[in-house]
């Protein structure tokens, strides 16, 4: 992924070409997923047409996990080598993850209304997903608050990036809780099908539609990440990186060495 991201975020004709190619691949996958999910795949025996919401809900949730995994990886990389580009990748990943988590909650709510008979239930999967949304919204709010306090550009200042990286790593603790909530506790939400160790039966056309939708959503998210990182890079280049050393103390009086 690093080489892909670097290529895709390059601010030159080659990078632009790579982004255009990715956009075409994403459009092709999305068309195929839409066609398969809406027409080729049959309606579910127990749930009827409402089950088709799966082709939006599951990709949104999985790619949100992926986006938060990108936040984790980029935050760790930033703490290790101090490269602010990783900090910008982390921020873009969190933004994409928050949007996708909201989409997963929204589509899930509609699906629940149609099949369970309720828009919302205080069930472990639903509550933990809401906490996940809250955690990464808090992460973005923390970045904003730090940027306002330090006056540095978000994405170009280590006084923002270091605390944010710690929060971005800590937030990922919730992802396994969300994913395994349906196994650890009694829930209204059904358990995993594709990601289950012993896969329960799913019609192959439904599985195909689901996998195409996940591929399309992943490609769109990667493209969104590349564009977002590029835009943040340009913004930081315009304002200039804050003249800080690697210690993260900045203009404030130096903290006592421990």
């Amino acid at each position: 992924m690093p080489t892909t991201t670097v290529d895709l975020t390059a601010d030159n004709p080659r990078g632009a070409h790579a982004r255009r190619t990715t956009a075409w691949i994403a459009a092709g996958l999305a068309t195929a997923a839409g066609f398969t999910g809406a027409l080729l795949a049959p309606a579910d025996a127990a749930q009827g047409q409402a089950q088709r919401l799966m082709y939006l809900h599951v990709p949104a949730a999985w790619v949100a996990y992926l986006a938060f995994a990108a936040v984790l990886a980029a935050s760790v990389a930033h703490l290790i080598n101090g490269d602010l580009r990783w900090d910008r990748v982390a921020r873009a990943g969190a933004e994409i993850g928050v949007v996708l988590t909201a989409v997963a909650i929204g589509t899930g709510s509609l699906w629940g209304h149609l099949v369970w008979g309720t828009w919302w239930a205080w069930d472990p999967r639903l509550v933990s997903t809401a906490l996940l949304l809250l955690a990464y919204t808090g992460y973005l709010a923390l970045r904003r608050a730090l940027a306002e306090r330090t006056g540095g550009p978000d994405g170009g200042d280590r006084r923002i990036s270091r605390p944010a990286a710690v929060a971005g790593i800590a937030g990922f603790l919730l992802v396994p809780v969300v994913h395994f909530s349906v196994l650890w506790w009694r829930s209204l939400h059904q358990q995993a099908t594709i990601l289950a160790p012993e896969r329960p039966p799913i019609d192959p056309r439904m599985a195909l539609a689901l996998l195409l939708a996940v591929a399309a959503a992943s490609t769109v998210a990667l493209l969104a990440l590349a564009h977002r990182v590029l835009r943040l890079e340009r913004r930081v280049a315009a304002t200039g990186e804050a003249p800080t050393t690697g210690t993260g103390t900045g203009r404030r009086s130096p903290a006592p060495v421990r």
Binding site: P42, A43, D44, A45, A46, Q47, G48, Q51, M54, V115, W116, G117, T118, A121, L188, Q190, Q191, A192, T193, A196, P200, P201, I202, D203, R205, M206
Partner: peptide
């Protein structure tokens, strides 16, 4: 006073070609 349906994680077609009692 409230019923919620807790459906499983198995997905099957409902077409008449695959008669399936509900």
């Amino acid at each position: 006073d409230q019923v919620l349906v807790r459906h499983g994680n198995e997905y099957r077609p409902s077409s008449p070609a695959h008669p399936e009692p509900s």
